[in-house]
Every structure is written in structure tokens, then in C-alpha cells.
Design a protein around this nucleic acid. Sequence first.
RNA 1: GGCGAGAUAGCUCAGUAGGUAAGAGCGCAGGAUUCAUAACCCUGAGGUCGCGGGUUCGAUUCCCGCUCUCGCCA
Length: 665
Amino acid sequence: MRYLITAALPYANGPLHIGHLAGAYLPADIWARFLRLKGHETLFICGSDEHGVAITLRAWQENTSPQAIIDQYHPLLEKSLREVGISLDFYGRTSDPLHHQVAQHFFSTLLTKGWLEKKAVEQFWDPKAQTFLPDRYIIGTCPHCGFEEAYGDQCEKCGTLLSPTELRDPRSRLTGVTPEKRLSEQYYLRLDALQPQVEAFFRTRSWKPNVYPVIQSWLSAGLTPRAITRDLDWGIPVPDLPGKVLYVWFEAPLGYISLTRKWAESQGQPTAWERFWKDPDTRIVHFIGKDNIVFHTLVFPAILLAAGEGYTLPHDVPANEFLNLEGNKLSTSRRWTIDIHEYIAAAPDRIDELRFVLTALMPQTQDRDFTWEEYTSRINNELIATLTNLIHRILSLLWRYGNTHLVKVPDFLLQWRAETAREMAHALFSYDFSKALNTLLGLAQKANKSLTEAAPWHLQADEAQKIVAGYGDLLAAFGTLLEPFLPVHVAPTLRRYLDIQLFTWDRIEDPTPLVRELRLAAPPQPLVKKLSSEELSSLREKLLPTASPPPSTPPPSTPLTIEDFQKVLLKVVTIRAAEKVPKADKLLKLTVEADDGLHTVVSGVAQHYSPESLIGQQAIWVANLPPRTLRGIPSEGMLLFAEGENGTLVRVGPEKTVPPGSIVK
RNA sequence: GGCGAGAUAGCUCAGUAGGUAAGAGCGCAGGAUUCAUAACCCUGAGGUCGCGGGUUCGAUUCCCGCUCUCGCCA
């Protein structure tokens, strides 16, 4: 079987962040690497999406040209992807003349075949910027609540969804001038007429459980004609129609075809692309985020079907959900992101670690949350403690007994390893990347256990050496099993160190010994270094200094009764002692005095207050919370702090000193 | 407003084609161990499987209603 793998074309309007990585690029890469190891002919392509109104508007706002914007981001995007080990065979861009040609060809073909229709629509035009405005670039007064800053698509104050024509006193967000309504003729794709074909295609595929319902609901609602042209000067010109360009959603997916053709040209075999697009033995798989599901499962296939030129339809579209950051949606405009290029700059030696964490947290069926706490604990307690520590453990034992070892593998290790490889393959073929990774960790766990039970360190050296050498087979297997997940540093370093090859996946699935002999040239070094709290803080500081979480509008709390409120016992306490909790960068252990004596409270304010500065101060204490153990210290109740800007915490206390234990009511 | 998804241990999640004591990892408590990056190994505590009804000998699992969260669409 031959595979063409694509990852969503990143928009050349901003950098990539960890959400993009976890959503599309990382799963696509793991899959591509795995398929290659499985021995399938695999082509993995991607490229920058360089058209669209957001780029035009951005250029206008920054007083530069769209070309300058894409020339800034295109190289950055490619560099970021390459540096996190995304093993693309080709990375191109949609501003390429060949892409224009392909997209225009599709337009003309569809027009000739009668799948397009012309319709006149009224749109807002900004006379100063000389451009049509998308809905969200129009601002005005909400007809429902009177809010004066409502957007053309939605009022952020009352939540009502709007259309720009409903706004009173509409203004352009670009220039502030009043936009004019203009009638404009556009081409529409007759998705309604294509629905039967699209539906037939839909039924021949088995979709991921998070993808299926989305398509289903669109189809049952009935597809409607959709505009594929607009009035802009940046984009792919519509043939014979000056002033109009193709809408990005129409031409960007066609990029998969033109990028494959560019790849073929770069190989000196200009027709090689047809193997991937016109041969039914090729499976085309698009990795995307959930926001792109409709375009890849319905619209793009509709375009290919309409063109009727024998293009292969997508085999699968394994879309992922979204990744959140510390409980809030990722947002480039609010700068609430971890950008890939910034992560690389801050932690150039920890690429595999990021890949590991994002694979473990991959939002495969539902949104997931990335937190720094989880990042640390996954690296230290799973990647290192379970997996790379096992490798280091075996290597250290081997080194102790000599530097050349004949490997005789016990049966159970061969079986475990082969089973693991098979189970991982099964999980990967169903796009369950977290499960594949967990299966791998399970192997390490079993091996850790059996090694502990065998306890070779209690045995005579020659006997011990034999036992440990048996685990050498596992090391050889890890050199391959880790490759799809940790290809930047861990897997290649291990292979280089032991001078072992990258095996085929089938070879790993076969329970026969992989190597006869292992040589260690130098004392082993840990493959991954433990993440210290200092390193973590510096990483956080580098990556989030400018970011602020979206304004945390406190949830409109359910109405509280006075009885409910009286359940909370608040007292003023005096802080008598304070010390840092060892090995916790946030926690302070505080001893507070109330009317009934001293209490211990562990509080997460170490990054905002030094212990000394708190001693003698008063604070408000929630007295009737059940005790909870933090870092082994029983903590009674909690102290109240106000959350200021950028998450700073500020102590809340009485205006004047009062006796400890005074009730707050 | 319509549609969809989710609600399971302190946290992040798996699972049950309805059936003897509901699982993992992390965290927590204790133990064992020292080859290993205070890592590994063992034991334990902790869950009326969102709420209310129904079907059934039996429901966390099926059906209906409700609440909350998220998303998509208009």
C-alpha cells in the first residue's frame, strides 16, 4: 500500500503553537515515520497557506504588503516544523505559480462542467482601505443590548450572533469609516447539486468518532451553494475576471495536489505525483484540527468529484480536537500560546520531551489541557522514570560487567517486545497515538519489574552479565520503537551509542533476537535529563512573559443564599511562621494563629511572597475546609489572596490589626 | 434556538455488546530495595461511574427527563 500523508497547511500569518503541533503535525509525523518503518511507500507533504483576507488586512494594518507578511512567516513555519522533527518530504507554499495554475484549472473545469453559478450579494466595502470587509472587521452597536463595540458576527456582550447588516452605526475596524454596502457578483460552488455524490463517498469511509457526527450533521442539514470567489487583489486571480480572487477554502486544499506536483518536480520526475493522486492503490490521509473537518471531508471531496478527472478521494481525515493551555483556549491574538519557535529557542535540547508530552496529551477525541505541571510530571515521572531510566539502568549494568556482550534473549522478553510492537501498530493504524505510547511505556514497566525480580546485582558477575545481556535485545528494539515518537534526540542517540540499525517494524514484531552482540564504547549517559524546578521556572518565564490569560470573567455564579454563604467560616489570623516547602517552587508552609491556637496552612504563594515578608502579617483564613495533604504536609483550610494582573497574588487582610481568630462576616 | 460531544478516584483519562469485589498513569500513605536520573519494585487509602425517573431478576453500561461544560450551525 502507498500512502500520501498531508498535514493542515499552516496559515502564513503567524507562528505555529503547541496546539497546531498536537492537533495535526505531530500525529501526521508519527504516522509517517511509522508507515515508513512498516515498509510502505510514504510521501508526507505540507506547505504554507498564503492567501486569504486575514493576510491582506494584516498587511494593511501594518502598512506593509501581503507579500512581505508571507515572506516573513513562510520560512519561519518551515523552520519550526523541521526543528521539531516533522519529517516532511516536501514543504511548499500556495503562492507558487504552479499552485495558481492548478487552482485556476480546477475553477475553469468546474465552470465548464456546470458546477458553478453566479450570484449577486451585498457586502460591506471600506472606501478608505479600498477593500471588502469580512464580518468580524465591522464593528457597531448591537441591536439587542445596545453595546457599542459589537462585532459584525457576534456581540461579545450579550452573546447574540449577528450579521453585519443588523448593526446600528456600522464602522470599519480597519479605518473607522462607515462602510458602504456594495453589490458584488460571485461564483458559487453548487454543493447542493453535489450532495448525492458526496454522501455516497461519505458512506464508503469509516470516520473517527469525533469526525463522523460533524459530517453527518452537515449532510442532514443539506449542503448549500458556497461562494468560491471574492473581491480582493491578494490571492489567486479568477480566470478572465479582474478584481476577483479564489476564496482560500476553495484553493488551499488543492494545494495538496500542487504541492505533490512540486515535490515530483523537485525529484526530477514531474509525473511521479500521479502515483499519489490517480492510483487507487494510494491512500490519502489528511491530518487536521477539528476546525477543518468540513472542508476536508465534504468540500474538498466535492471539488474533486466535480472535476471528474479521476482524482483519488481522501482515505481518511483523522482530525484532532483542540489543546488548551492552563485551562484557557490558545489564542495567538491574546498571546496566550506557546509558540513552537519560541519553545525551540528556550529549550533546544528538549524537543523530544515536548513531543512526548504532546503525544500523551493528544486531543484525539476531545479537547485536552496542557499545563506546565503536567509537562513536568510526564517528563520526569513517565518518560524518564519509566522509559529512559530503564534504558540507562540496563546500560549501566552492562557497563559494569564489561563492554562487549553476547546477547542471549529469554523467550519472555522476545514475546513482550513482539507483542508490544504489534499492539502499537494496531493503535497507530487506528490513530490512537496516546495508546501506542502507553503500550510502549507498559513494556518498559514490565521490563523494570522483571529486572528488579531477577536482581542480577545480587548474583555472581558472569551469571549476572548473562541475565543483563538478555535485556540488550530490548535496547535494540527501543532504537526502533521510539523512532516515531522521539526521533530528534532519544532514538538516534541510543542507536548511535550501541551502533545498532533502525530495524523495520515487522522485524520488531517478529519474536526472534535482533542482535547477537552489543558493544559499549563509553560509559552510558542518561538520554534525557531530569527537569528541575529551576529549569521549569526559567522555561515558563521565557515562554509566557508577555502572555496573559484571557480576562477571567468570573463565571456568573449561581445565586447564593445567605445560608450558603454562612457555611463559610472566615477568620482573621496572624501569620507566625513561614518557610518554603522543599522541592516545591510554589508552596509555602505557614503557621497561623487563630483564636483556637496554631494551624498549619500550605499556600501556593512562594512565587509572590518571601517567607520573611509574611511573618507577622494578618490574613483571612477559611477555617472550616477539610484538611488536605500537600507535599506530605497536612494543610488546614486556606488563606485568601486576590489575583492581580498577570496572575500575581496579593494577600488580603484586615485594614487594622485585630485579635487573631476574629470572625469575618 | 437547532445539532453534536462530554460529565467515572485529589488530577488527567480508559472501560463496560447490562451480571461475581469498577481500571491505568500521576499525586498521596506505608514498605522493600540500591543496578539506575531520590529513579525502580510491592502494598494500601481514595469512587452511591453528573442528578431524577423508567425497562430488567440485575444498570455506571439501555430508554426518557434534567443540570452543567465544550463545540458546531443559524
